[in-house]
Amino acid sequence: MIARRGFLVGALALPFAQGFAARAEQFAGRYAPEATPIGDGIWMVRGADEALGFANGGAIANSVIMASDAGAILVDSGPSLRFGEALGRLALRLTGKPVRRVYITHLHPDHSFGSGAFPEAEVVSLPGTHRELERDGAGFSTAMYRMLSGWMAGTELVLPQGTVNDGEAQFGGRALRLLALGGHSEADLAILDSASGTLIAGDLVFHDRAPATPHARPAEWLAALDRLGAIGHRQLVPGHGPLDTGGTAIAQTRSWLTWLGAALDEAVAGGLDMTEAASLPIPSHLAGMAAARYELTRSVSHFYPGLEAALFPRIDA
């Protein structure tokens, strides 16, 4: 999916490959996102089911491209300017029209940092996402450049220009139902494409890939899953992981979050420290999700100090 210049150079310079590779500078590669048709005029662009890192150029989130009379519709612009540009070329090739509308499902930079590639399009999000990006965007940018270096070339934070709210929407004759939810972050946008019966869930739903919780509000997230489950759909595009055609991804995400909450409560109450909690066994029905240990370790970091403060009794006189 991603052509890496480092690989090519290493292969061509075989006589020196070993010594060269040991000291080789890491160069960013070229993004080559691929689209899979999942219905009439709708394509899914799969991210790698991995931790965000240099090896994948940050391309870990799923995006969706839809055709409309007014131009292509893109859901989530990816991690960087170059990835956004590659998505734009892909959309033009698939739909015959340039991207004219970009929906950003939530603030996280693997979904929102490619927006600079779409100066001709209207980039929109929920009002909460706009606020969160204003607050955290600069910090994300620093972290993304540190991890992805060359992949980020030219990327600047582009805030959504418009806001959308819960309700029915039309773009270029394509009927969409917008759902203003929250829980994975302060504001999570999910979109139902009526024509194909596709529920584009953003990071409210992870599928065969462990959920990430840096801004999570677990109770609200579970309520959002209930609402998504009640909305009739034929298939679901999760924020991370493969297309869900069997109707299992919502339940799987709920199962992970429910286990995680109980496990961390019990860990704090049982006297474990953070490193011990991050080493807890992951139940077999969840352990197979990609990045499971990685996300548990992150979640311990996100929730543990708060849980200790809430659960430990005061002992000062």
């Binding site: 840096p214 420290d273 953070m274 490193t275 011990e276 991050a278 370790t297 992150r298 970091s301 996100h302």
Partner: peptide
């Protein structure tokens, strides 16, 4: 020396 697999938060690195 037990260290987590990643330093999710550089302000709070757990060490045992």
């Amino acid at each position: 020396v037990d260290l987590p697999m990643l330093a999710e938060n550089q302000h709070v690195l757990p060490v045992t």
